[in-house]
Design a protein around this nucleic acid. Structure first.
Lengths: 201, 201, 201, 201
DNA sequence: CATGAATGAGGCTTCATTCAT
DNA sequence: AATGAATGAAGCCTCATTCAT
């Protein structure tokens, strides 16, 4: 057996965490289970990562990167700021096409973990901010160009936060209380709400 | 030491869980810590509750009850369905007035726990459904009376789910990534989005 | 509710232990369960008994007394020592007629407890000795009168011990490995073995 | 500290349980005590065994294996079925030569445990059945060849069960009420009883 | 790089017993 | 004589992490 490079191994371990976490939650994602899922041993995980938390942070980073990339891809044909807003919503609320369920489930779990582990919380906050930045910019531009109109009490950052919250909420309820959300309505509803918020056509 | 009634003790224990959980998360809310916070012994917790999970479920129940009651109070003066929708949003997004931060933090934590503990998940789903019911009804009525208009792909249940998701998202980000949400904008943004969704005036 | 006399209460508690132990074993016969079975409270058990062990010892005593009485009843018509031996075996191996299954199950459980609790062990040993005494005497008499003949290496006490062991073994396997013992054969087999041991006709 | 193979460790742990159980009973054979006796940590026990019960089951298995092997060894010179019956009794009732007291004490304790733990009970029943099988076969053969004669109400299985019960009874009383059984008489008495049961010479 | 045995802190829970009422 | 809340000592088990090989 050819030994694998550190980079490959790290990726495998992060993958394993993603899968285990997605269907068992972080609490049950023990080192032992991750190792088993990855087809390697517990010791090796700590050889490649300083701690289990570090694996989680790497996973978080990876998810963000993928989302950012997906956003870039989806926005490439955008002709105006509304298109960009739509692209943003599309990327996040069309898991059928853009994200796999594992990732969404993991994301929600990470959210939970962000609450209990301060280090995760910090990285998480920054990640959300990064994710939100292009949306805020699009809205800001749209307002400047007259494409959008916001109520006076709501700034572009607040509007972006609102849309982000909506997405986050859909993720959460989608995982925790799936039956409550009629299938396939998230995207349309979100668009409708965003349109109202931005007074866009 | 005065002997207290079971009911009082149960309430105290639930309170203690609420406080510990709010600032340390459920994972760190060990029975030992809960006992310490409540000023009693670990054994007593299990004298009054079958398990730690049962304490959590009782807390969940209590939060739901309070929210439902708050909604009733807030809706009492509502003159039409839009007022009812506003009341719903008010109750949930005005924590400054209606809910204490501990409760919101706990709610988010419970959300996370709902993911990993199936029993919690079940109760949680049902709770969300219960919470959402009056909103869905208001929307349904509003649509029937012509007060609201929904896009054809969106039914009243979906619309209610959208608003619920938005609230849930605000809760989540409010706890995990507070800096991302400009202070005091949640309520106005939510109203604006709801108006857009329902085509209400 | 008229308060009951201490004696009655003690009997009720011992009864409850008997029943709980019979179908759940001593390990699961917690104070709480005994209290529930007896329809009274935990505290009361310790009001009437110094400890849980004391309840067990009282039960043991009661079982022995009943067995002794049954032996007397069964032996009343005995015309010779062989009849007395048969009576002894009858009393112990005809639970269908002479002892209730609860008692047998409890007896086996007590045996187990005798192993782990020295105080129980002492009382148990004495109880077995008491139980065995009349049997040993009958055998002794039978040998003296020429009714029985024992191999030279086996004294009356040893012979009584052998029969006692056989009974004890049937009790044990009857409870732990019931399928191994063909139904309804214990009594006949025991008689046949005793006859061989004593060279009786 | 030398790292040992899992197999070695498992054996050591089972050994430790055997020793602790033999002189303190299963109830007092806590994981802590077992660990101490084995000179290792509690955690390690659970690294090698899923649960404490699993250790007990392994011990049971080991005792059975040893007994079976001893029976084979003892039976090798048997010239007829009576010899085989004698071999069976020898193996079980000559602890001085064939089994160590620890093992007998443990066996009795396991019997007790079989009552309270269903899983143990199942394995125990099967174990007894396995142990008894060769005896039943020898008796069956002996009856067929005319070497033995059984009373009509007693089949070979019942006869084997009777002898097994006798042995089991000796084990039990030997541990719980040793004084009741005159030293060194078990084997002779058992032979005499078996001879009577089988009408063998 | 890799293995897997080993550690040890700590978690949840059970239960006989005590005690205020 | 009776209640039932309260205690506290253990018990079993989990798990991230370390370490000898």
């Amino acid at each position: 057996m050819p030994r694998k490079s550190s980079k490959e191994r790290r990726a495998e371990i992060v993958d394993a965490l993603l899968r285990v976490m997605a269907d068992q939650g972080y609490a049950k994602a023990t080192t032992a289970k991750i190792a088993e899922e990855a087809g390697l041993t517990q010791g090796l995980i700590h050889y490649h990562f300083k701690s289990k938390q570090e694996v989680l942070l790497e996973l978080l980073k990876r998810i963000i990167d993928e989302q950012q990339q997906a956003l870039v891809d989806e926005s490439v044909d955008a002709k105006n700021d509304w298109d960009r807003v739509v692209a943003f919503i599309t990327v996040h609320l069309r898991p059928e096409e853009n994200a796999d369920p594992h990732t969404v489930a993991s994301w929600v779990t990470i959210t939970a973990e962000a609450i209990r582990q301060p280090e995760v919380g910090e990285v998480f906050t920054q990640s959300v901010a990064d994710l939100q930045a292009p949306l805020a910019e699009a809205i800001s531009n749209g307002v400047a160009s007259g494409e959008f109109q916001l109520n006076e009490s709501i700034g572009p950052a607040a509007a972006a936060a609102a849309i982000m919250s909506l997405i986050q909420g859909y993720y959460n309820l989608g995982v925790t209380a799936r039956q409550v959300i009629p299938k396939g309505t998230a995207f349309d509803s979100a668009l409708s709400m965003a349109r109202g918020l931005l007074h866009a056509s």
